[in-house]
């Protein structure tokens, strides 16, 4: 059943597969983001309560969703590297961490810029904001650990274990922060309700979300390729590859 997957355990096959995938993902993401962002900025209606500041939503929510799904993807990759000894899996975990950190930072920054006009402050110790901040710390820890090792094989495994420990802890952290927040703070902040979104707001959001998701895929492909060639630099196919100029 899983036999079709086996060739991809070979670094060379995966390298070329990622190389083939890269332009498709990149161009599709560029197209979707162009259409989606122009739609979001120019044509989508303003929110009846929040006015034009609602347009931040179209980057804030996609990056917040992606920041969590990338962590999950990283942990799954780390698990398959540790349990089934898939050696390429920890390469993909290492490739994903910086991307996740960037999207977490975007979610936090846009959240702050949205919170200032809506809530009157750049930052509130709201449960969702706080757990997003802790998620950023977890990402930075994984990246720092990965950079601390010279041997990238070892670095990938160590960072993978940390990612797994983090993924077990994330629900606990999220729960504890939510609980802490309700205990320490009254409902001074009127949270955004979740009314059914109008379709003219929904479609630009879907386009932006898919665009950002494909962008993550494209960047991950390049980082994955980098990880593969640095880990296999003694192999003849890598040597032929780097001395010939074409990709």
């Amino acid at each position: 059943m899983w036999k079709w997957l086996h060739p991809y355990a070979n670094p060379e096959v995966s390298y070329h597969f990622a190389g083939k995938l890269k332009p498709w993902l990149g161009w599709a993401s560029a197209l979707l983001l162009t259409v989606g962002l122009i739609w979001a900025l120019l044509f989508a209606p303003a929110d009846y309560q929040q006015g034009e500041s609602f347009r931040i939503f179209y980057i804030h929510v996609p990056s917040a969703i992606l920041s969590m799904s990338i962590y999950l993807a990283m942990a799954i990759a780390a698990l398959s590297s540790l349990v089934w000894q898939v050696r390429l899996a920890d390469a993909s975990a290492a490739a994903l961490a910086p991307i996740g950190a960037v999207f977490t930072a975007i979610a936090l920054l846009t959240g702050a810029a949205w919170g200032k006009p809506m809530w009157g402050t750049w930052w509130v110790w709201d449960a969702r904001l706080t757990s997003e901040l802790i998620l950023l710390f977890l990402y930075l820890g994984v990246i720092a650990l990965h950079n601390a090792f010279d041997d990238k094989q070892m670095a990938g495994k160590a960072a993978g274990i940390l990612a797994l420990v983090g993924v077990i802890n994330l629900p606990i952290i999220k729960y504890s922060v939510e609980w802490w927040n309700t205990l320490h703070q009254g409902a001074t902040v009127s949270k955004l309700g979740a009314p059914a979104m109008a379709s003219e707001m929904y479609w630009p959001f879907v386009l932006c979300f898919l665009g950002f998701g494909l962008l993550v895929g494209a960047v991950a492909c390049v980082r994955f390729q980098t990880e593969i060639i640095t880990r296999n630099k003694m192999r003849p196919w890598v040597r032929n590859l780097v001395t010939s100029e074409v990709n």
């Binding site: 500041s53 980057i59 975007i106 920054l109 846009t110 810029a113 200032k116 006009p117």
Partner: peptide, 9 residues
């Protein structure tokens, strides 16, 4: 605020 968040992103 809008251009700050779009620019920073």
């Amino acid at each position: 605020y809008v251009w700050l968040s779009f620019g920073a992103s």
